[in-house]
Amino acid sequence: MLALYYYPGNASLLPHMMLREIGAEFELRLVDRGQNAQKSAEYLKLNPSGRIPVLVDGDLVLFETAAIALHLADKFPQAGLAPALGTSERAEFYKWMIHLTNTPQAEYRAWFYPHEHVSDEAAAPAVKQASSERLNRMFDVISEQLGDRTWLLGDRFSAADLFLFMLIRWGRGMPRPPRSLPNLNALAERVLARPAVQQAIDAEGLKAPIF
């Protein structure tokens, strides 16, 4: 059976939502960040970087959120969370998955943990402010690319939309949250309405406002 090491609302939310969409049997294994469990010797054997999530699939132990998402899309093609291999639509899917993990997801590190980017704690607020401004520009670009389409791939729902939903959710406490962009808000509402997403949110005990 698949096992997902998670913490509520963390990057593990993406593969958790995907597993619910797929309808696969899996076990959720809580990594209690409140107790710094992600830095425990036991967890570091799974992911030496000490970050969440990790997916265990038989003998495969996989970390990195985007890698887990791509593995699940490939392992369960019948779920339709990615277009067919070798198609231009699949290339567009890769583009969005890589962009989301390399650009806004990576930038959130400076927003949430500005102290990691300075040697003088007094500079942390400036790092956070600059990160907020960069995130605003990133979401502006995503909004422009999305336009009035239903999903990032047009009429086709994919794991990329779940990824974007998670990133929109992470920005709910920003001075200008991503949901303030009407088309991003509309996409997030469409994702939130999906039964599998509701199941993941309920299982993790996430409370309103969701995004």
Rank of each mutant, 00 (worst) to 15 (best):
P195Q: 09
E189Y: 06
E116D: 10
I168G: 00
N47M: 15
E64N: 14
Y108R: 05
L44E: 13
V127F: 06
Q35P: 06
N36A: 13
R172C: 11
L13G: 00
P182N: 05
P83V: 10
R176P: 01
I52N: 02
G173E: 15
E144Y: 06
L164V: 08
E116F: 07
H99Y: 13
P83S: 09
L100D: 01
Y108I: 09
I52R: 01
R172K: 15
T101R: 03
A79T: 08
Q78C: 05
W111S: 01
W96S: 00
T101H: 14
E107M: 13
Y108G: 00
T87N: 12
L4S: 05
G86Y: 09
G9N: 07
L72F: 09
G147F: 10
K45S: 15
P177C: 08
Q199R: 15
A67Y: 03
I22F: 06
H71Y: 15
H16P: 02
I201S: 01
A130Y: 03
K95L: 10
L19H: 03
S131N: 09
N183L: 03
P53F: 12
M18H: 01
R169E: 11
A91D: 10
V61H: 13
A106C: 08
D155H: 13
L187H: 03
H99L: 09
L55A: 13
L153E: 01
M97K: 02
V191G: 00
L30W: 13
D59I: 05
D74G: 03
Y113T: 11
Y94L: 14
A126M: 10
T101Q: 14
A193P: 12
W96K: 00
A122S: 14
K95I: 05
M166C: 14
A73E: 05
K45M: 15
K207S: 12
F63V: 08
L184V: 07
F165N: 00
Q105E: 14
G34Q: 10
D148F: 07
M17H: 14
F165I: 09
A208Y: 05
T150H: 13
N136M: 08
G173K: 12
A82G: 05
